[in-house]
Design a protein around this nucleic acid. Structure first.
Lengths: 239, 239
DNA sequence: CGGCCAACCGGACCGGGGTCCGTTTCCCTG
DNA sequence: CAGGGAAACGGACCCCGGTCCGGTTGGCCG
C-alpha cells in the first residue's frame, strides 16, 4: 500500500510547478526525511535488498489491514510480525519502532495534504493571497487529521512517549512549520514568526483537537472558526 | 514530603482573601480533584488507613529521592516499590499508575504556582489589571515548569501515552484554563474565549517548550517575549 | 476484649515495546 | 559459477507498566 511515489522535486533545481513557494529548499538532501519510510519530501533511502523490500511492503499491507480492522491503537508490533509471517525483529529493523511504523502508514495521507498546500488549487495552494492560504491551511489540517484521526492519534501518542523529536520535529511537522512561517511573512506579519508558527501549529495538535471534540463536545466547525479568528488576531490588523 | 496542606477554601463559602476571582466555584466539591494525591483545590480523599497513609508518605519520599538522584524519566514503579520495601501492587494501589505518582510528586509545586496566581501579589495575583495578569501568567508558567522540568516533562510524557484526559483535563490544567478564560473575559476579549484559552495554554505546553529550548536553542526570554507578543495580538487592540 | 470485614498488602503473572546475536539470504565480484 | 561479506532474518530475551488474587492487618462494633 501507499508505495508508489509521486515524483517530488529534488532540492537544488527549483521546479515552480511543484514548489512555487520555494519551501523545499529548506530541507537538505539527506537529513530531515531520513526516518524510515518517510520519503515524502526529498530522496530515497540507500535502497533495500530484494527480500527486505518485499517484506517491507508486505508489512505495510498487513499493518494497514490490521489497523483498519482493530483500530490503530491496538496495533502491536508482534501482531504485525506474526500476521505477516516474519519475526518481530524484522519489523523493528525496518521501521525502527512503533512510531516509525505508524508514520510510514501515514506517509500516503501526508503526501496528499502536502501536495494540496504546496501545489494544489487555491485557496490552499499558491494561487491565493497569503492570508487566505493561512485560513485554508488550518481548516485543511483540521479536516485532514480528523478524517484519519485513528492513525494520527496513534502516531502522536506513540511519538509522545519517546523523545519529543518525533512529535515536534518530524518531517511533516517541519514542513508545516516552514509553510506557516512563509505564509505569515508573506502576510506581512512582523515579530517572531518562527515562534508564532509553532504556536499556531500547536493549536491544531491532533491530541488537543481530539480531546476538544470527543471530550468537550466541540464541533469541527467551531474549531475551524476558532482558527480563522486566531489567524485574524495574529495576522490581521497591524501585521 | 510535600504533605502539609495549606488550607484551601471550601467551595460554597467564598473567601475573597484566598479566591478573589471566584474561580474555585467552577470545581464541584468532589469531582475534578479526586485523582489520587491531588488535593490541591478542594477536599481530601476518604481518609486512609494508618498503614496505608504511612506507606504513602514513605513512597513519596522514596520516589522524590530517586527522581532527584536519577532523573524523573528513569523512575520506575518497581524501583520505587523495592526501594520503599513494599510490593509493587501497593504503589499502584496508592497512585493508580505512573502518571498518578508523578502528579502526586508535582502536587507541592503545583500548589505554589496556583497560590501565586490565585492570591499572590501583583502582577500575577488579583491586584493587577487583567492584561498584566495575562502576561505575568505566561511567564510564571514558563519559568515554573522550566524550573521543575524533569518532573513536569516526565509527567507529561506519562500522561500522553494513556488517555488524553490526564494531559488535557487534569485538575491543574483545568484550573489554568479557567483562569485564562477569566482573565481574557475581564480583559474585554470577545469571541470564543474557551477555545482561545486552550490555544494560549497550548503554547506553554512543557513538551513543546522543552523542545524549543533544548533542540531549537530558543531561550526562555525569547519564549516569554513570544508570550507577551501573543497576548498583545490576541487581547490587545480591538478586544 | 474479641471477632469480623473491609481495606490493604505482596508478588506472581501478563502483554507489549525494544534489544541482541547466531543463522540465513542476497548480491556483487572474481 | 563460486565464494565471501554485508545485510537481513528470527525469536529468545529483558524491562517495565499494569492486573489479579490469596493472604494479612487494622480498626470498629458488639
Amino acid at each position: 500500500m501507499t508505495e508508489p511515489l509521486p515524483p517530488f522535486p529534488v532540492p537544488g533545481e527549483h521546479d515552480p510547478s511543484q514548489d512555487p513557494d520555494g519551501l523545499l529548499d529548506l530541507f537538505p538532501a539527506s537529513g530531515v526525511t531520513g526516518i524510515t519510510g518517510i520519503t515524502g519530501i526529498t530522496g530515497e533511502q540507500p535502497r533495500l535488498r530484494a527480500d527486505a523490500a518485499r517484506n517491507r511492503t508486505r508489512l505495510l499491507e498487513v499493518a494497514a489491514r490490521l489497523a483498519e480492522e482493530c483500530g490503530a491503537a491496538k496495533l502491536t508490533m508482534e501482531g504485525v510480525a506474526s500476521a505477516a509471517q516474519v519475526g518481530k525483529g524484522t519489523v523493528f529493523r525496518r521501521f525502527g519502532d512503533r512510531t516509525g511504523l505508524l508514520l510510514a502508514l501515514l506517509d500516503h495521507h501526508e503526501r496528499e495534504l502536502q501536495a494540496a498546500f504546496l501545489s494544489g488549487p487555491p485557496p490552499l495552494g499558491p494561487d491565493a493571497p497569503p492570508a487566505d492560504r493561512l485560513r485554508a491551511f488550518g481548516t485543511a489540517v483540521l479536516r485532514h487529521e480528523h478524517a484519519h484521526r485513528d492513525l494520527y492519534l496513534a502516531a502522536a501518542r506513540a511519538a509522545a512517549r519517546a523523545d519529543a523529536v518525533r512529535r515536534h520535529a518530524s518531517p511533516p511537522t517541519l514542513l508545516r512549520l516552514s509553510h506557516l512561517g512563509m505564509l505569515l511573512r508573506r502576510a506581512g506579519v512582523r515579530g517572531d514568526v518562527e515562534l508564532l508558527a509553532q504556536t499556531l501549529l500547536g493549536s491544531l495538535d491532533i491530541t488537543l483537537v481530539d480531546h476538544l471534540v470527543t471530550r468537550r463536545g466541540m464541533t469541527l466547525e467551531r474549531l475551524e472558526a476558532g482558527w480563522n479568528d486566531l489567524v485574524g488576531r495574529v495576522a490581521g490588523p497591524q501585521g
